[in-house]
Design a protein around this nucleic acid. Structure first.
Lengths: 248, 248
DNA sequence: TCTTCAACTGTAAGATCTTACAGTTACGCG
DNA sequence: CGCGTAACTGTAAGATCTTACAGTTGAAGA
């Protein structure tokens, strides 16, 4: 059934330079694998209370508006699932969801009114703390297994490349996501903070004065634009500035 | 070429209950897609300084031992790449790596002495902060494109299911990774700490006394088994106990 | 050579967190 | 009705972080 090779689609993503081009590639994936609609969304941990969201929507505008107005992200079972998992989720009006709450049932039935009846959602989580997902949707009441089996591997890979492409496009085009760099020493100081060490303890570990530890941590706070050490730790960990060590 | 369907392999993962069974499924993937060797590894952020590692190795034992003794995780370009990225990495002795350092060149040549010459590595990052990767390796000097194009989509999906299965097996079998639960209120308090708020500010936001904020944060520290608030924040963020909000 | 930057250091007042003490209230479950 | 649990509250001493002041040193690049 697929007329475009999976590799071709991925190359198309890599060479896309605008959101519109990405939209087109997603539409092609949809068509090729027998779905009518798609939507991509991602959440960037610029803040925990008010993160930054990116959407590329192939869903009906009316449904998107309704969705946003009702803050359906917290209800949508595909979002809830994908935020916690790494494997795809199949969904349709009935069988797939385990004991849906009335709220979720209402949500699914409303979606169906807009032609979003069944589909598959692919989650992605990045080392930089991004959460992204791509949903492919169909008007079919019940999910079509053979169709799914075909799109399953391709979709998972595609979604990873799609998110990578989105970040590339947004980092160059749309400004609000500025990446800062921490120096080696700053990361070292921060590492020991995440391990529960005090300034003094860290100074002994790194063999520098306590004042210098404070100095580096102050610089981190300035660079990250945060108001205290707790926020700096949260931001740095969430965005992958420091990762668990490989060295034992 | 693949004799086993991709879906069958994934079902085999889901029904596996031991590490040995997972090992067998990975071997089957290898065979089916024309690779000789595989290795799966994951890093669980139990601590930033000394995280917990899990390996399922289909690599020669001698090479594994040599690798561990030399702490090659910090040199291995596939690990370095996968720790930062979400898309697969193709590798072989020459072309694929951009300006390898002498250290990396030596590493690649040593690997080759053990029959690890080229291959593909699939990264996975989970919402719980796990980092995992699966490498499929071949003795071929130069990477075989048609072979790769076939395994690319399947490998990405398989790796996600593999990691899920590994966590399932380890959570039930091997004890050291005990998951704790934070209450709703505890998460709320922690959320505002990650946003840089003081105890007093948080108390105003949540409409409780400052003492109660302290109380919840103390409970979090006890539950997570950490020594202060910074470590609690780092651990909670790293392990996905709190995620950026979906509600605007 | 001049500039930039990482890395480093000291003092001190004030803000905030940590820890120890000792409780109350409301809810669900057996 | 007892038990466990989430959620809540007060006081106070001591530990730790934050912010303000004001710098030096060495290496890399223009």
């Amino acid at each position: 059934m697929p007329v475009t090779g999976c590799i071709d689609l991925i190359e198309a993503l890599s060479s896309a330079g605008t959101v519109d081009e990405l939209h087109t590639v997603c539409s092609r994936l949809c068509e090729d694998y027998g779905f009518e609609r798609f939507i991509y969304g991602s959440r960037i941990p610029t803040s925990f209370v008010k993160p930054y969201f990116i959407f590329i929507s192939g869903y009906p505008k009316a449904w998107r508006d309704h969705y946003t107005q009702n803050n359906y992200m917290v209800v949508d079972p595909t979002v809830v699932y994908c935020a916690e998992n790494i494997t795809p989720m199949l969904w349709d009006g009935r069988s797939v969801l385990h004991d849906p709450t009335p709220e979720v049932q209402r949500f699914m039935s409303e979606a169906q009114d807009f032609g979003i009846s069944s589909g598959i959602s692919f989650p992605v989580h990045s080392a930089q703390g991004d959460f992204a997902m791509l949903s492919l949707a169909s008007e079919l009441q019940v999910i079509n297994r053979p169709m799914i089996d075909q799109v399953l591997p391709v979709g998972q890979l595609f979604t990873a490349y799609l998110h990578e492409a989105v970040r590339r496009v947004f980092d160059s085009d749309v400004l609000p996501l500025t990446r800062v760099e921490l120096t080696q020493r700053e990361k070292e100081c921060l590492l020991w903070v995440t391990e529960g060490k005090t300034n003094w303890e860290t100074s002994r570990i790194l063999n520098i004065s306590e004042r210098t530890v404070v100095f580096h941590l102050q610089n981190i706070q300035t660079k990250l634009g945060v108001s205290n050490r707790h926020q700096a730790v949260a931001r740095a960990v969430a965005q992958g500035f420091i990762q668990p060590q490989f060295t034992q």
